[in-house]
Design a protein around this nucleic acid. Structure first.
Lengths: 232, 232
DNA sequence: GGCTGAGTTTGCGCTAGCGCAAATTCGCGG
DNA sequence: CCGCGAATTTGCGCTAGCGCAAACTCAGCC
């Protein structure tokens, strides 16, 4: 990636919202590139936070593992999303393990460079607060769902969230443009893969959605899914 | 509160960590004071975020209500904690309703003044990221607990969290220095008040803790509670 | 001091959904 | 093309804990 390509990637990220040319150039010049292969981990939960990443393209799943070995999917990240930035700024260990769900490319900065970038460009600090706040809001929403809703609603809400983040219109409806297994949906919604499988099988029968394994989920009746998510 | 008293309040808040005298004075001079009475709401979830608060003393519970009228307790706030700041900075509606659990006092700033404070004192932006990140981390932890743990463990973890945030050594053990009802514990741990009641009754019988209603919970065997929180 | 309402406790029936087990499917790599 | 492993599906027994109902407790207010 040359400088212009990098700048093009950066200006599409909300972390660089309202950033001027100087900021973009500074960030582009100080960044390094790192391709990431499917299933590769950028870093591991618990490690010292040494680098902060921005996903140029590809998709990444953010996993947290519990002390008894269970996994919770925190979120899916797409192009323009930051990875590891808050941990770097806080000088805390990484709280999660980002796993690439497809081949991709990242730009990354060492902790010092990132802190300097933010110190010299206050708009980036403001944007970091915005982004962290946005993550906070989403987690609050998820906690509310898990605390108060049955599984079906939660699955519907989770799929709609992926649609909102990354959904793509296709001929039959809306596609979630990355691989999402029943197991992963289970780890996003605090349930088991068996329950997800049963639920999705029923919805597939009903024509609400289709897709499994490497074929991406396609929501054919999004309004139906919204109804399910909002039922009492 | 005179200026020195305000400064004393501010410098004890982690939002003002590493802030110099100028910053503290600026913040103290531009703040207004608002006492808050037990059960009073500072603002309501969904309202436009117009003011940002810092709790000088007292305790506040942060509630989120779902569309079907159920309540989730997001966290308890104590002296030095910010209330509504992220929403103000993000120019989003308030995501929660802060309810005073005892009489207290707040300092507050209008949105413009707060944004200006942060723009003129970059250390505050850094601290805001730190604080938001810390909230994020806690919510991730709670989500992991709800997703993967049985109720008992969750209750234990929740009580230990209050102890860590606000616990006070007393003669018999560690006191949680604010009123925490079984219903509120239920809303913190995604369970029902009946289950909390049963669990706490058993633990009280076992000598692990004591206290109900207006009498604060006292954890008499904290190590036992840690064991429960960490069991598999 | 008495009353009241909110908080706590307890019994118990019920079920959502967990988790075991096994069968089926399918995508990928050699 | 075949084998294999991971993903998906399906049957089913079981139980953690929900939620209804009712009784008890106690703090605060008049």
């Amino acid at each position: 990636m040359n400088l212009d390509a990098r700048i093009s990637v950066l200006e599409r990220s909300s972390f660089f919202n309202d950033a001027n040319r100087d900021t973009l150039v500074h960030a582009a010049e100080t960044a390094s590139e790192c391709p990431v292969a499917k299933d590769e981990q950028l870093f591991r939960q618990g490690e010292e936070a040494s680098h902060s990443y921005l996903l140029a393209w590809g998709r990444v799943r953010l996993d947290q593992t519990t002390s008894d070995g269970r996994n919770v999917v925190i979120r899916y990240l797409g192009p323009g999303d930051l990875i590891g930035t808050v941990a770097v700024l806080r000088r805390k260990p990484y709280p999660a393990t980002p796993v690439a769900v497809e081949d991709g490319m990242t730009l990354f900065w060492g902790a010092e460079k990132k802190a300097q970038l933010i110190a010299e460009h206050p708009v980036l600090a403001t944007n970091a607060i915005e982004l962290t706040g946005s993550r906070l809001e989403e987690l609050q929403e998820r906690l509310r769902e898990v605390a108060t809703q049955r599984v079906e609603r939660r699955i519907a809400a989770t799929l709609l969230r992926q649609v909102r983040h990354a959904g793509r219109r296709v001929e039959d409806g809306v596609e979630i443009p990355f691989t999402l297994t029943r197991g992963e949906i289970a780890e996003l919604t605090a349930t088991t893969l068996h329950t997800v499988s049963r639920t999705l099988a029923a919805w597939e029968q009903e024509g609400i959605l289709s897709g499994k394994r490497a074929s991406h989920l396609v929501i054919t009746k999004p309004h139906r899914l919204v109804e399910i998510a909002e039922q009492e």
